[in-house]
Every structure is written in C-alpha cells, then in structure tokens.
C-alpha cells in the first residue's frame, strides 16, 4: 500500500472528460511533480486529490484511507494539506498570527476555554512553534508584518508556512511558483526542499513551470488531454518523445 495513491481517477463535466483514468503512487518523503501543457487537466486533478471535487469514478487514498469526496477540512485533519494558486491568507492578521491560526488543529480551542481565557494563542508556549516555522522558512524579519502588505512571493511563502503549521504529512502545492520572478522562484524551491528534508513531509505539486519542476522533483507525472502521458525521473521526462511532442506539437503538425 502506497503512502498516497490515485487509482483510475476519472472526472467528467457533462460530456467533457477532464481527467481520464489517471493512476499514480507517491512514496513517503518524495517530492512529486505533476506537469502538463495548458488544458491538460492539472487543475482538475489537483481539485480531485485535495477534496474540492468529487471524482466521477476511481479513488484517491492517503495512508490507506479513501479521501476522494471527503471534505477538505477532514482531509487536512488526516494530514494532507493543500495550498492555493492565488495568494491565500488572512489579510487582517500579521504573518505570525496567520501561522498561529493555521495551528488551530493542534490546540484545544473550545468555547469554554475561550470564555475562561485558556486558549489565548498569544501566550508564549503556543507561539513558539509558529515562530519556529516562520523563522525556518526565512521570514523572521516579517513576523509582525500585516499579511496583505507582503510582496507576492512572500505571500505565497506564507501560504506554505500556514499549511506547514497544521503539521501535515503530505503537502499538496497548487502551482507554488505561479506569477513569481526568478529570484522568488529560487527561494520557493529552496523552501520546499528544506521542508521535506527537515520534517520529512511528502510533497505533491502541480506546476506549469517546467524548469522549477525539473530542479525540484525526484519523479514527475506528465498529463496531457486529461490522461497520464508519462512518468519518471526528470531525465526520463526530458528525453521522452511523447512529452516533447505534447509540449512542442508533433512533427507532422509542424510541417
């Protein structure tokens, strides 16, 4: 039984088959990339594995449990947390508060505790881990910055930091470097590697940016027209004829 596996996953919107019979297995501690040209079904795939869509057929299992069709918050409770393509953050709160709110799963926040004043997260001990995460991800200087005043790159980093604060075993990243400049991309790539190396978090990312995926991922799954086209190491994928054709167009269509 794989750590995370997708079995014959299919999603149809009316007559349109967005994902067709996709299967893949991700091992614990792996950094896996899912790529594909525009319209390949990456976003649909991500929405299926993160619980946003319910598959038409097939299933997704995580640690032996079927998570497809489960509410996102339940999947997060099991330890598989997603991030967003857009900068998703709680804009009225500081960086540290954002991370602190994301720790919510590991606290005993109840109404009674709120009223008698026992769940105040501004207390030192519960802040400690939030500070650790923020500092570890190189955002120590911005701890007390309001989240909406951060640059785009930092906002996306904060998104990952928040996902990390839930103490996940699997991190699902939706286009983690979308809209970033090359410097920001490098920081993000470095950050994802650090997260895996230090905490042993398994990473599954869907990404458009070929170079980032080649640098970061140990294994890559390529989608095209909603189907799995190829799978292998970055070198395998780079030299795979079908992949090159999918990205550049087949020879006969060029001539």
């Amino acid at each position: 039984m794989s750590f995370f596996s997708v079995e014959n996953l299919t999603k149809k919107f009316g007559g349109l088959v967005a994902n067709n019979n996709i299967s893949m297995d991700v091992e614990k501690g792996e950094i896996r990339g899912v790529i594909g040209p525009n319209g390949a079904g990456k976003t649909t795939f991500f929405n299926l594995v993160s619980g946003f869509y319910r598959p038409t057929s097939g299933k997704v299992t995580f640690k032996g449990q079927t998570i497809s069709g489960m509410a996102t918050n339940k999947i997060a409770r099991l330890g598989a947390v997603r991030t967003f393509q857009r900068p998703a953050l709680f804009s009225d709160f500081t960086v540290l508060e954002n991370v602190s709110i994301a720790q919510h799963l590991n606290t005993n926040a109840s109404l009674l505790n709120a009223i008698i004043g026992h769940d105040n997260h501004r207390e030192a001990d519960s802040l400690e881990r939030a500070i650790e995460i923020v500092d570890f991800l190189g955002m120590a200087e911005d701890r007390d910055t309001m989240a909406n005043n951060l640059s785009h790159g930092l906002q996306r980093q904060l998104g990952v930091a928040m996902a990390l604060a839930t103490e996940p075993e699997l991190l699902m990243l939706d286009e983690p470097v979308a809209g970033m400049n090359s410097g920001e991309k490098a920081v993000m790539v470095n950050m994802i590697q650090k997260i895996r190396d230090k905490w042993g978090v398994t990473v599954l990312l869907v990404e458009h940016d070929m170079r980032t995926v080649m640098n970061l991922c140990e294994k890559i799954t390529v989608l095209d027209f909603g189907e799995k086209l190829a799978e292998g190491s970055p070198d395998d994928i780079r030299s795979n004829r079908a992949v090159i054709e999918a990205y550049l167009g087949a020879d006969d269509s060029v001539t």
């Binding site: 709680f90 769940d119 105040n120 997260h121």
Partner: peptide, 20 residues
C-alpha cells in the same frame, strides 16, 4: 480567543480556512 480568530478567519477566506 483562538476560537474568535478562527471564526474571523472564516470571514476573511473560507476556502483557506477549510484547507487548514
């Protein structure tokens, strides 16, 4: 309280709250 912040976070971004 933490609970209060959790509730406010729902207002700010429901999808994000759900994801964490």
């Amino acid at each position: 309280s933490r609970l209060g912040d959790t509730w406010k976070s729902i207002y700010t971004d429901r999808e994000l709250s759900e994801s964490i």
